[in-house]
Amino acid sequence: MHKPIRKAVLPVAGLGTRFLPATKAVPKEMLTIVDRPIVQYVVDEALAAGIEHIVFVTGRNKTVIADHFDRAYELEDTLKSRNKGAALELLEKIRPPAGSTSFTRQQDPLGLGHAIWCARDIIGAEPFAVLLPDVIIKSQVSCLKQMVEVYNDHGGNIIAVEEVPDDQTHQYGIVELAETINERASRISNMVEKPAPGTAPSNLMITGRYILQPEIFDLLGRHETGAGGEIQLTDSMLELMGSQSFASLRFDGESYDCGSKAGFLSANIAYALDNPELAAELVPLLHTMLADRPAGG
């Protein structure tokens, strides 16, 4: 029987420089996809997978994230006085249960591996999930829930992957597969960060969702730096692969890299089109805008 996945780490300390000046005073995780901040989608995914406790690894000027998941007494009192029951119910729905969130600080920008290591004392000696908040995954079943189902059957470490065109593999972390577990999951024998064009072992990129065993903390705690002079999660996963099993899951869903402007805008359009009222207004506007653009523009 495998220990259950009860906790998740969300590294939210990044500066969001690609979205300046919007992120000068507003964390990139709080930029909105339609009517909810990016981080809300990621938290919803974790909760839908049965996560009981979420650890936010924050940096300076990120207190608004904690405020978002807290009570807003003045706002709630105003909504009550104005009989805005639907809005009040929405705020209640997005607030995690009391005591189910923790916030710890990454004082220095030393990389993703270091950010995860900062959560070590809160996670403790149990397996945990990592969800990168730059990536939101649109799916019928929570991506992390799909991963937890594979973990419950096979244990070990699980990484979410998805296919990318062969000519783009050099832009991502790519996994090398070993034996097949089922139609969507396979054992991993290697991971290569941004392989040179034409050398990738597969076309499956690492998508920003992980289930990891707690032994990863000992490896991250060595503070050995890799690419960019940062403590890289991939380096420690590769070392852990020597003693523990790693599996990939080709999840059912579509990811949006909201750390890029194109991905952020694509996510807004995709989620807006899911709303019948918005879609009724948006689709004609998109058609008109596209028709007015010059060919190839």
Rank of each mutant, 00 (worst) to 15 (best):
F69I: 12
F69V: 12
D70R: 13
D70C: 13
D70E: 13
R71P: 04
A72Q: 14
L75G: 03
L75P: 00
D77W: 06
T78V: 07
T78S: 07
T78Q: 04
L79H: 07
K80S: 02
K80R: 09
N83E: 12
A86K: 11
A86W: 00
A87V: 00
L88I: 08
E89Y: 09
L91F: 01
I94V: 09
I94K: 07
R95D: 00
A98Y: 05
A98P: 08
A98C: 02
G99C: 04
S100M: 03
S100Y: 00
S102H: 01
S102V: 02
R105Q: 13
R105M: 10
R105P: 13
Q106V: 01
Q106K: 08
Q106A: 12
Q107G: 13
L110N: 11
G111S: 11
L112N: 13
L112Q: 10
L112K: 13
L112G: 08
G113E: 11
G113A: 09
I116N: 00
I116E: 00
W117Y: 15
W117K: 10
C118P: 07
C118T: 05
C118N: 07
A119H: 04
A119R: 01
R120N: 09
R120Y: 02
R120W: 03
R120A: 05
D121E: 14
D121F: 06
D121Q: 12
I123Q: 06
G124T: 10
E126K: 09
E126P: 11
P127G: 07
P127L: 02
F128Y: 10
V130Q: 05
V130K: 05
P133K: 03
D134R: 13
I136Q: 10
I136D: 07
I137D: 07
K138P: 06
S139T: 04
S139H: 04
V141L: 15
V141G: 08
C143Q: 11
L144E: 09
Q146I: 06
E149G: 15
Y151Q: 10
N152W: 08
N152R: 15
D153W: 11
H154Q: 13
H154Y: 10
H154D: 14
G155Y: 06
G155I: 15
G155F: 09
G156S: 07
G156E: 06
N157S: 08
I158N: 12
I158P: 12
I158A: 13
I158T: 14
I158R: 10
I159L: 15
A160I: 15
E162N: 14
E163R: 14
V164T: 15
V164S: 10
P165Q: 05
P165N: 06
D167A: 06
D167T: 12
D167F: 10
Q168Y: 04
T169M: 04
H170I: 02
Q171L: 06
Y172W: 14
G173F: 01
I174A: 10
I174Y: 11
V175P: 04
V175A: 12
E176M: 03
L177S: 07
E179C: 03
E183Y: 05
R184Y: 08
S186I: 02
S186Q: 03
R187W: 04
I188F: 01
N190E: 02
N190D: 08
